[in-house]
Design a binder for these strands. Structure first.
Lengths: 219, 219, 219, 219
DNA sequence: TATGAATGAGGTTTCATTCAT
DNA sequence: CATGAATGAAACCTCATTCAT
């Protein structure tokens, strides 16, 4: 005799919390927290309204669980890419970009930034938490790579804090873009192309070139 | 000779719709459309609940009026910058960046992108409208400058469609950032610094430099 | 020189209360008391909302004034017909019917019964008042004529109280009918025809005929 | 063997919609549609405000359901009486009167005419619908009986269309009367007496008697 | 006297949450 | 565990009434 009879029905039951989370994520992203009704989530998850409360104590708790679940894997992914490596700073930026591409390639994970941005006002703790756990760590990682590149002379002298943000911006924007304008966009650019162009442009811009900037600058 | 006798009380009356719009914008941006209560808007505008309905037929109508009002000035600003000029492509990009800086320097106008992003799900027409009226026109303007620079050899050969997005991303991101993380940010970067660094990095990256990319690899 | 300059503008001013009453009556009859908005009445009367309150202290007061105004003339009319006369009972009933025809011929006056019926629930005093002032007096008048006819042998022996109601019913019904179904009726019967047929039928039915009822049965 | 286990609590649950309808009817009749608050209906039905919306989508929908429910049985009753029979026209009118007495004997059913009359203004479709489904059919039935009586010589020559209305008027009026003046009436006449007197008077009046009308007519 | 912008109490409706089955 | 009928707090919106002009 086996230890348990998980013949399809049981398996479903154990996957419930996960299915609920996914249904909730989709609805929260599509409609925003306030406009999402628990019944919508329940229907999408294929369970009854009351069942949601067996797993999550309230709508807020469900929302936080959604963010946590996404953060968990996102952070893990970032941490994985954080490991030191013998590559050049440029190649390490390329590797980070690859990792980010993987993340925003998964629509479910790409939705997180928008979720945070759209609901930070209603969840005071959310912005702070996301900022500390994701933004700081992400910017820190990139900043360190940039600083290293500057130190070795691979990059020209720039402020790593500032340029870390510049490096991240198109990725974040791309993620938000997808979940907002994808449906109405006429001429769409594949995220992969965008990311590739971004990295090359970025690295060229950092190259310790001759003078300061090409033409007649100042600002 | 005065045109009319506006004795302080009258002036207030005529400014009502505008005051309501500003109060509504602030609240919608802070809490999102659904979580905003009409009473909050009224209190912030210093009027009674019912007064809102003298000017706007419903919460939705108020929201749309807010977006329209912001769009109006934003579009006008963009159109102004659209004028052809004898400057180099690089300097024209710098001018556009200046214009954008002016826009996101006004907190009220900087709030529009977040408003659209956060509520596109609940207002199907909103994303489409904003995309057509602002995104397309903005990207088109920048794309044309880029294409011109490529044609004259001022820039290396890049895809204007793709790089227009890259040019805009940090600006948009900055605007969204401000209204989302400003309160919790530890080490903030002045938007002006960010924008300046961005433009310089961008122009360096576009310079028709020697080889392809500085160091070894490829993606 | 005249005593006052009432050149059309002044005359209008003095007629205001009456115009307001008429506008109110029309609206109350059409929509019911609760569904009538003061602004509707004002617009129909051609005055501003606030002006109504110069003449009537509240919506309820306006409603009561409407009823009073209608009652006044209605009662007066009835009283006029109440005068004793040398006619036969039958001819006096015919005269009363004439009077009623005059009343329900004026759409404004015909509307009163419906107004009372539809709003008696919301105005506890209204039913009582109308019953005392109109119903009782009307039924009393007719009852006395019937009793007189019975006493003189002009009519067979019937209960004047009961038959007074039977005499009034088609008139009331006709008045209510007009303001309720007139717009949707396919085959309408002119009120005058209806009334004439009613009186003749009624008088024939009262004639001290041979047996009890024409044909065989029982009750 | 029982079909199901309805242990007193369950029975209550299934009767909910019906209980709500009855509570709503009573309140609508007493106060009119506009003056009725959903909370009143809920309290009278012994449920919470929100519960009403489980069964009826809106206040209007509830009102229409009330009318429908009443109409259903009323129409059925009328149809039942519509069956051809071998009786004389007079006896068939008596039978119809009996049927009507049954209807207005049930206070709930007697309330329908008043409901329609009082709210036709706010529900444009209501008057039309009621007219077609009840008034036309009722008048048609009676008109056919009258026409038959005229054809067989049982009645004198009258216009069936006109006299059908005269036949119905006291019944309708009685129904409306009950729900409007019952509480304030001093000398009330039992509806049954009224109806009986009406039918006898009506039949006498239709008898193909000697001349036209007894005494000195003409209008 | 007349106006109509402003007010806010009160009504309809929604929906997160509970609990008996 | 799972359900979904029931609840009632809270939000949107209307409109009778007031009052500065």
């Amino acid at each position: 005799m086996e230890d348990a009879p998980p013949p399809a029905a049981r398996r479903r039951k154990e996957a419930r919390p996960q299915e609920v989370l996914e249904a909730a994520l989709d609805t929260f992203v599509g409609r925003g927290f306030a406009a999402t009704r628990m019944e919508d989530v329940a229907r999408r998850a294929g369970v009854a309204k009351g069942t949601l409360y067996l797993y999550y104590a309230s709508k807020e708790a469900l929302f936080e669980a959604v963010v946590q679940a996404m953060l968990g894997t996102t952070i893990a992914r970032l941490e994985g890419d954080l490991g030191e490596s013998p590559l050049s700073a440029g190649d390490r930026l390329r590797a980070v970009a690859q990792g980010m591409a993987g993340i925003i390639g998964d629509p479910r994970r790409a939705a997180l930034p928008k979720l945070v941005i759209a609901n930070a006002g209603s969840f005071p703790g959310l912005a702070r938490f996301y900022y500390r756990e994701v933004v700081c760590r992400g910017l820190g990682l990139i900043g360190r790579i940039l600083a290293h590149g500057v130190a070795t002379g691979e990059f020209r002298a720039i402020d790593p804090t500032v340029h870390a943000r510049l490096f991240v911006a198109p990725v974040l924007m791309g993620a938000v873009w997808q979940t907002t304008f994808a449906a109405v966009e006429e001429t769409s650019v594949p995220p992969a192309d965008l990311l590739h162009a971004h990295v090359e442009l970025f690295l060229r811009g950092l190259a310790p070139g001759a003078a300061d900037a090409p033409a007649g600058e100042r600002s």
